[in-house]
Computed example of a mutant assay.
Amino acid sequence: MSTAVRWAAFGCVLAPVVLVVYGASAGGVMWVAPVLAAVTGICRLLLRRAERGGATGARSAAGDVPR
């Protein structure tokens, strides 16, 4: 498991706890962890896609990829 994924999981747990400590209702913050997890997952997928797509795009632009 990468460091970024561990920090994301930590943030998904910590954010609702902090909100409850600072006065938000427990029922009101029940949506925070799943939403943060979904956003984290989407960002991770987009970063992977950009890393793969960016590398092939750069190679094709440089003429390294046969057609």
Rank of each mutant, 00 (worst) to 15 (best):
M1L: 15
M1H: 09
S2D: 07
S2T: 14
T3K: 14
T3W: 15
T3M: 14
A4E: 00
V5I: 11
W7H: 06
W7T: 09
A8L: 15
A9T: 10
G11R: 03
C12G: 13
C12P: 03
V13N: 05
V13I: 12
V13R: 09
L14G: 13
L14S: 12
L14R: 14
L14C: 13
A15F: 15
A15Q: 10
A15R: 11
A15L: 13
P16G: 06
P16Y: 04
P16M: 04
P16L: 06
V17Q: 05
V18L: 15
V18H: 06
L19V: 09
V21C: 09
Y22C: 14
Y22L: 15
Y22K: 10
G23M: 05
G23C: 11
A24C: 10
A24I: 07
A24W: 07
S25V: 06
S25C: 04
S25M: 04
A26M: 14
A26T: 10
G27L: 13
G28I: 08
V29G: 01
M30R: 13
W31Y: 08
W31D: 12
W31M: 05
V32M: 10
A33W: 08
A33L: 12
A33S: 14
P34S: 03
P34M: 04
P34F: 01
V35L: 11
L36S: 09
L36P: 10
A37D: 14
A37S: 06
A37T: 12
A37P: 01
A38H: 02
A38I: 04
A38P: 01
T40Q: 11
C43H: 06
L45D: 09
L45A: 10
L46W: 15
R48M: 06
R48F: 09
R49K: 10
A50K: 00
A50C: 02
E51R: 02
E51W: 01
E51T: 01
R52H: 06
R52I: 07
R52W: 00
R52F: 03
G53S: 14
G53Y: 12
A55Y: 10
A55H: 07
A55S: 02
T56S: 12
T56K: 06
T56A: 06
G57L: 05
G57A: 08
G57Y: 04
A58W: 00
A58I: 00
A58S: 01
A58R: 05
R59H: 06
R59E: 05
S60K: 10
A61T: 03
A62W: 00
A62P: 02
G63R: 00
G63P: 04
G63T: 03
D64W: 08
D64I: 10
V65S: 08
V65N: 02
V65M: 08
P66G: 05
R67H: 13
R67T: 03
